[in-house]
Write a protein that binds this DNA or RNA. Structure first.
Length: 279
DNA sequence: ACCTGACCTCGTCT
DNA sequence: AAGACGAGGTCAG
């Protein structure tokens, strides 16, 4: 209970999970699907939205304790004890990570802002203008040309197809939530433009699969740097096969909350290189 | 089955 | 100032 008050909003927002957040006069405003969430210094613990978004239903102490068996992890958690994994709107999360491929954070943010502005509903909150995240139907029916204007490059066709899959019901988020990790991931990977890394992001950040560990360039670097003995990383670029092998070893080592742990390692390493976060 | 290269775009660096 | 580089990957050959 006490722990709920120790959340660090800045660290949580700036950990590469979410992109449509903006700080205005010491308050964070963010788009989460069809909602605009407002985060003040002290979180409103009674708000159902906040409860859900910050995963208050998780036993964070237990997660922390289990992950801290590993020394490097323990240190990373101690550096950012107030950071949390968020439970995002699944469709927004899905599109966000599809457009994230081979990109950096400012770039991803711009794309999502443009998509929302073009296809999402306008909302005024506290005299500030926001755009809700577009409905699947809206993106599914948008022309390739219009989507391309949002600066998606070759990801344009991914987004269009992915939105169609959701609109048709081929991809159904509530069902994916009920499936186990492997099955849900296999299903997500059927979508054109979703590989294992992107699938893991969607699973971890919006579908309650805390054992999903997105293996990106950063995580590989981290593993090479601190875990060369535990997991021998042969290549810099990860292949289909090595992805699963490595993932299995990681879950073996860190346990069922490995995905949660990955976030701490990631945040810790990124901040030591002072990468750009959201403003 | 693996491995390699191409891929859109944008911000940053030189 | 223009050109190269690389960024939280994926797909096709």
């Amino acid at each position: 209970m006490k722990d709920k008050f120790e959340i660090n909003i800045d660290d949580t927002i700036n950990s590469g999970q979410v992109f449509l957040w903006k700080k205005i006069d010491s308050k964070w405003y963010g788009v989460d699907g069809k909602k605009i969430l407002i985060l003040e210094d002290k979180l409103d613990v009674k708000s159902k939205n906040i409860h859900n978004f910050f995963r208050f239903d998780d036993d964070f102490q237990r997660i922390k304790k289990q992950l801290s068996k590993d020394k490097v992890m323990k240190k990373a958690i101690n550096n950012f004890p107030g950071m949390r994994i968020l439970r995002q709107d699944p469709f927004q999360c899905y599109i966000s990570f599809i457009v994230s491929s081979n990109s950096n954070i400012p770039n991803i943010q711009t794309r999502l802002q443009k998509l929302s502005q073009k296809f999402g509903e306008k909302k005024i909150v506290d005299k500030n203008e926001f755009f809700l995240f577009p409905e699947p139907e809206k993106l599914a029916n948008a022309s390739i040309n219009e989507i391309a204007k949002c600066g998606l490059g070759y990801r344009t066709k991914y987004v269009k197809k992915a939105a169609i899959a959701v609109n048709k019901g081929t991809i159904d988020f509530p069902s994916l939530k009920k499936q186990d990790y492997q099955e849900a991931r296999d299903n997500l990977c059927q979508v054109f433009g979703i590989g294992k890394k992107v699938a893991d992001c969607i699973l971890l950040f919006s579908l309650d699969k805390l054992e999903a560990v997105p293996l990106d360039r950063w995580v590989l670097r981290i593993l090479q740097k601190y875990y060369s003995k535990e997991f021998q990383i042969s290549t810099k670029t990860i292949t289909e096969k090595t992805y699963d092998e490595l993932h299995n070893k990681i879950v073996d080592h860190f346990g069922e909350y490995a995905g949660y742990g990955q976030q701490f390692l990631f945040k810790n390493e990124r901040d030591s290189f002072a990468k750009k976060w959201l403003g």
